[in-house]
Design a protein around this nucleic acid. Structure first.
Lengths: 185, 185
DNA sequence: GTCTATAATGGGATAGAC
DNA sequence: GTCTATCCCATTATAGAC
């Protein structure tokens, strides 16, 4: 494991915990056990390192989503598996949280991987819903793209409620609520 | 309009745009057209001023929610009015966004008004859903507390998706999706 | 590749004059 | 009540030695 990789991992953790604005190069270096010179050798600066970290987290998120969604079962079962998989709810979403970071949203390069990731998750969910619709499991009149957005929003918003409450409970409630509505189709 | 009020308004705007970590006392003073001395006369420091700003935003949010939810109509109509009211979607939620701020979440005093606000919105929505259930409009088997969490999560998550995409579209989709599910009850 | 030194700027607050 | 001066530390780098 090279120093470069340790810097990226360190940046990933800090971006998750504190966001882009709240994370300093110095803090990243200290957590990685690397010095200034090392960081500026491997990366052009804070933004460059953050970009590498965000891309890595995005890959991980998409791989994890795909893992739940490709399991056997009905569409609703697969979506339920995705929503109910074990999550560190109080830590929130490493990608979604960046959405609240003014410097990320203001910079097209930093926003791009965030946008792409959430867009792809929605597209993947819409595929699963389409399959369920074609199998006659879901009503033919459903707008699957809209419903996919709803499901991802429930996740992202569930994190918000849980962090506000200091408890995973509202997250679990939000998930239960949408699954109950879905099941009735 | 006193200087104190202008400082609070300035802090409200900056907290909304940039969060707590991303907002400096100096920036607040400049936007308010006030000096250092003025701010430290009226408030004990950054946290104290932020607390005043957050409390004010919380009141406003609760009043706005109540306005939509107390209109005449069925439960689903009132919830639809709430979800579909005009919003500055790309700015996100002034309260929900604080949930991503490590210094807010780490400080019980700062987190309290955020928690209380979102909890009260959920409670208010649950009341409306209960009324709909008693009126026979909604299935008696629905868990209204869970569904209330779902609805608030769709809002909060919708903001996340919209900011990522740089467009209100996914927010509107998420809202449409949950309303379509609700309408089928 | 990594280190230390240096630097310009900003963050967050206190002190005391007016 | 508000102003300016001052303080100490953090941020985000660059330079050049090793």
């Amino acid at each position: 494991m090279g120093t470069r990789d340790e810097l990226v991992e360190s940046a990933r953790e800090l971006l998750w915990e504190r966001g882009y604005v709240g994370t300093s190069p110095k803090a990243i270096q200290q957590r990685a056990g690397a010095g200034q010179g090392s960081m500026y050798h491997h990366f052009a600066g804070k933004k460059d390192l953050a970009l590498a970290a965000v891309r890595r987290s995005a890959e991980e998120l998409l791989a994890a989503a795909d893992e739940q969604l490709r399991t056997p079962g009905t569409a609703v079962e697969r979506i339920s598996a995705y929503l109910r998989r074990e999550r560190e709810v109080l830590r929130g979403c490493p990608i979604g949280r960046l959405t609240q970071d003014p410097d990320v949203i203001a910079d097209p390069q930093l926003r791009a991987p965030v946008d792409e990731t959430l867009t792809r998750v929605r597209a993947r969910l819409a595929e699963v819903l389409d399959e369920g619709r074609e199998a006659g499991e879901l009503s033919a009149s459903l707008d699957t793209a809209a419903l996919a957005a709803t499901i991802v929003a429930v996740l992202q918003g569930g994190y918000v409620l849980a962090r506000a409450a200091g408890s995973p409970e509202p997250f679990d409630q939000a998930v239960s609520g949408v699954l109950a509505l879905l099941a009735a189709h």
